[in-house]
Design a protein around this nucleic acid. Structure first.
Lengths: 237, 237
DNA sequence: CGGGCACTTGATAGTAATCAAGTCCGGTGG
DNA sequence: CCACCGGACTTGATTACTATCAAGTGCCCG
């Protein structure tokens, strides 16, 4: 894990400030102020960023890369709670409630994190109270995500659960092509399984089934193409 | 549904203000101000309080009673997301993001709700900005609850899942007795089933099993006594 | 006391977990 | 550039579990 520390004037676009929804209201000079407070860190694929119970020194904002946040179930299986991307943050419980993080976070690919130390953030908050609303906004979005995940995990029909995940991935990581939507999968088969609470074998079988039915096309292990979007949505709705 | 409208000076203790965490920082005179803005409503057991998609006119705070919040799964089964009690609120997405509520809410028993209209709440927020923190606090608590529920739903071992629910109920609705913890169950068997994503028959069987094993004792259909707390916790941990 | 609804219990069937081989893909080194 | 190696993935067979269907039973309320 290497630290790049403070930023120069010329590489502002490499700093989180410009990419993060919670700072979207900031004026130019405020941006600069924030930028000076930020420390950036780099993590390799598979590296742990935080562990459940950690007391973080600040708010962790993802500058680039993808991160999975998970807890362990009783059977010591990973249960994924969130997939974070550029602009997402974690450690807010530390910031707002002085509570340690409640999940593990692991880089899914090379990932850069911007850390805003607690005291810096609270000072910023005093000067720009509108950030408060932005945070609440993000918290509400997170709540919505969790509520949907629970709704999904409550449906017994595995087909529908997988369809829901594929639609989510298509939305976040897909690109339209003339014959369908090409999705760059953020998770391995096992990862998907740990997201919706089943085994990797089940995911394999169901994806194969969807391919047989001509609904999707597997492109290697890390990509797939959605050929019949409406069929997936029908499953889902 | 009957409206009792404004409050008198003498029955302040009947108004939400004094029972709600988000107002715990308020001064006496601020309390009074809030109290005057509040409209109270009464709902009977089984009555719907809000439906998914509703645009609420304000923040709904539970003054007394119990409420279940749920969504429907693909199979049109209820998936319970929250059990709300005195002091809990909903409709915050309307307040903070102008988004409709994302779940149905139904009174589990006779329930009184205090409604703080949007504009009143926003005015209050201007005068007492610390309420912001309280709300974020509550949102974080809600997130924690949802994360735990997902973790629980991700464990395959049904025994462990039910144990987790019983421990949650014991915490929230239990009273210590010399031979165990008497828990007043907020949900029917079917309700419990809809909380952890199984069928009512499965709940019945597992509860019977726990009784056979001397871990709990069923007291009618609406109460149960936990005789061996550590056995439940062992299941759970 | 009676009726209805929630609950319990039993039998069966369906589905995913588990166990167990293979197979494929991607990366590495020659 | 190709061959090889290891980990991820697929597929098959079996087992275990819960859903489902069905028939009582008992609790609670009027």
């Amino acid at each position: 894990m290497s630290c790049q520390s403070k930023s120069c004037e010329k590489c502002h676009h490499n700093i989180c400030t410009y990419r993060v929804p919670i700072f979207s209201d900031l004026e130019q000079n405020e941006m600069t102020k924030v930028t000076e407070l930020i420390i950036t860190r780099k993590y390799a694929r598979g590296e742990m960023i935080v562990m459940e119970g950690n007391q973080l020194e600040g708010l962790y904002i993802i500058h680039s890369g993808r991160v999975k946040a998970f807890r362990y179930t009783q059977e010591a299986k990973e249960q994924i709670l969130y997939l974070f991307s550029e602009g997402d943050f974690f450690g807010e419980k530390n910031l707002l409630r002085k509570q340690p993080v409640t999940y593990h976070a692991e880089a899914l690919e090379e990932t850069q994190i911007c850390v805003i130390p607690h005291h810096s953030f609270h000072e910023l908050l005093k000067e720009v109270p509108s950030i408060n609303y932005k945070i609440m906004d993000q918290l509400c979005i997170r709540i919505e995500h969790l509520e949907s995940l629970i709704q999904n995990m409550g449906t017994r029909d595995m087909e529908a659960r997988i369809s829901a995940i594929l639609l989510e991935f298509a939305e976040k990581y897909g690109s339209k092509q003339k014959d369908g939507i090409l999705v760059s999968m953020p998770l391995s088969r096992e990862g998907i399984a740990n997201y919706i609470g089943v085994t990797r074998e089940t995911i394999s079988r169901k994806l194969s089934r969807l391919q047989e039915d001509g609904i999707i096309e597997l492109v290697g292990n890390k990509k797939l193409k959605i050929l019949d979007l409406s069929a997936l949505e029908q499953d889902f709705i």
